[in-house]
Nucleic acid binder design. Structure first.
Ligand SMILES: [Mn+2]
Ligand SMILES: [Mn+2]
Ligand SMILES: [Zn+2]
Ligand SMILES: [Zn+2]
Lengths: 148, 148
DNA sequence: TATTGAACGATAACTTTTATTGTCTATACT
DNA sequence: AGTATAGACAATAAAAGTTATCGTTCAATA
């Protein structure tokens, strides 16, 4: 039983999810992936360890890991592009449960002035801040309150 | 000739793109849409004005509008979900041209402490900052420098 | 070790986005 | 105004990304 093996079993116990071979390999493989891979990229990598694994299994377990906090989404994925014509400088609150997006003014966030110089010679155009959390509606639902 | 008509023609002139009926209706319709619509939602709405419009036209012109700055993407869309296991508190620099994602520490951004109370009773989990701009590689390409 | 609900693999279905192609139209130039 | 032409359009096929379904296999618990 390896160290990561133990770590993973503890993680699963904490979150009440079953320990399966696929999940364990998925976890270990992703530990070794840097950058910000897509599910397809994770699938390609884990397939080297378990050639028979299904892409659906990768998707299902990425969801599971994200829900339980083992894994993090780089920025909340909405399935499709979202656009807006609101020209005012503003940012967003995004509900991690229902993915609802609402505006929040830059003032309300009290951001510092944006730095123009960043590591790697990156040329800054703008900052885009997502405040990730739970919206009021989802907070209500979470507490078992039923709605008409 | 309406006011928005004039505005739109000026916008097109500024960006060197042709004024077409579809583009103009698209622009006007989106002016009247609040929230953060998807291309499909924009399509459904503009279809009421031009029933024969094609979804491909909506996509192409949303791209065009985003490129020319008429429209803004809520957060840069990567086509697929992106995940990571980097537990350290950090944020991202995202290239608006090639969509490359790179990490940046919270310290380097000099963010203020996160507010826990936000408008609308939103329960904050975390901040996710995307610094949107042009990566070094794309800056080089932009200047017409050719690469081996 | 036997039971059983959960997880898996295979695959179909669905959603989102892009590419292709022939026709049409906005624009520039007489 | 009339014409040429590059670019935009609609239609539609194809690709890419994601989810649902279902029969089989496996992990957890007794
Ligand atoms: Mn907004
Ligand atoms: Mn990262
Ligand atoms: Zn919500
Ligand atoms: Zn780039």
């Amino acid at each position: 039983m390896t160290a990561t093996d133990t770590t993973f079993r503890r993680l699963c116990a904490q979150h009440g999810i079953a320990v399966t071979h696929q999940r364990q390999v998925l976890y270990e493989v992703m530990q070794g992936m840097d950058g910000h891979p897509s599910p397809e990229e994770v699938y390609a990598r884990v397939k080297r360890e378990i050639p028979a694994i299904s892409l659906a299994t990768v998707y299902k377990n990425i969801h599971l890991f994200v829900e339980s906090g083992v894994l993090r989404e780089v920025s909340l994925h909405h399935g499709s592009q979202r656009v807006e014509m609101n020209e005012a400088e503003h940012h967003h609150m995004v509900c991690s449960r229902c993915k609802a997006i609402s505006d929040i003014s830059a003032d309300a966030l009290n951001l510092p002035e944006q730095r123009r110089q960043l590591p790697g010679g990156f040329l800054v155009e703008r900052y885009s801040v997502d405040v990730i959390g739970i919206c009021l509606e989802c907070q209500g639902l979470e507490r078992g309150a039923s709605r008409v």
